[in-house]
Amino acid sequence: MVELEVSSLKKYFPVQKSFIERLLTRKKQFIRAVDGISFKIFNGQVFSLVGESGCGKTTTGRLVVRLEKPDEGKIVFEDKDITFAKEKELRPLRRKMQIIFQDPYASLNPRMRIGDTIAEPLIVHGIADKKEAKEEALKMLENVGLTPAHMFYKLLPHQLSGGQRQRVAIARAMILKPKFIVADEPVSMIDVSLRTSILKLIMKFKTLYNLSILFITHDLAVARLISDTIAVMYLGKIVEVASTEELIDNPMHPYTKALLSSVPSLFRRKREKVILKGEIANPINPPSGCRLHPRCPFAKSICSQEEPKLISYGNNHYVACHFPLLGKG
């Protein structure tokens, strides 16, 4: 069953200009953060969006839980079109879709006891009264490993470490027993030795609630560990999607290959590098045709003229490239 389906989703942000620039130019400029992407997330599966900073992965995450309003396209959550749904229509759905943010220092209210932070969603959604909510929150604290729960309930965020705060953020997201969560770089600010335990905690809830997860990360090693499917984004577009093993063992898009050959590894067997020229282009005026073409070592003239479509190469492996690297492992 499909939990979330996104098609041709677009979000452009207007570029803020200074007063003088506004007087001198009339043309409005846009950052094309997300520029026509489609994907499906199946029930109980983890779908990872991977890419470098500025590729649009975080915007995608915010769009699908409707923290941002899309410009075009379609978002269907549990068979309901929520693309342009109003806040009032969204409210009952918010119980089912939650988000965990990257920075546990910024995502918690610094003046609220963490127990109250966790209990609050139950009260807001009218599911429980104060006393019941407190009991649930205590149970949840146990569940995320913040014990003794009674002691942790009363603490303020600044009394916790980064890893503990992220546990609080997870507890708050999970207390409503959601069906779908967006996890936006949930471990990138956490110390290495604690990352594993946070990832394991997310996976525990995945099994417990049969969660579907949109997992956003720049770290391919983390993506490999937790996802069923990985999609690679570059400048607002999905360039390749496949099952985790397939994508890592058999990358076909030059960009995916370049990413994989750059990730440090303790156990790399061979180092066959794809070197991209220059740096990531400007999302305000992205290159014509394939957006990677100015940097791609395999680009030919068609690449600058025609945008490649995401097409299937069998085995549920989709690539948007005119000259995919077939069978070159």
Binding site: S193, R195, T196, A221, L225, L260, V263, S265
Partner: peptide, 9 residues
């Protein structure tokens, strides 16, 4: 043992 690796499951 605690860090995931991209090339080894």
């Amino acid at each position: 043992q605690s860090i995931p690796d991209v090339f080894v499951r």
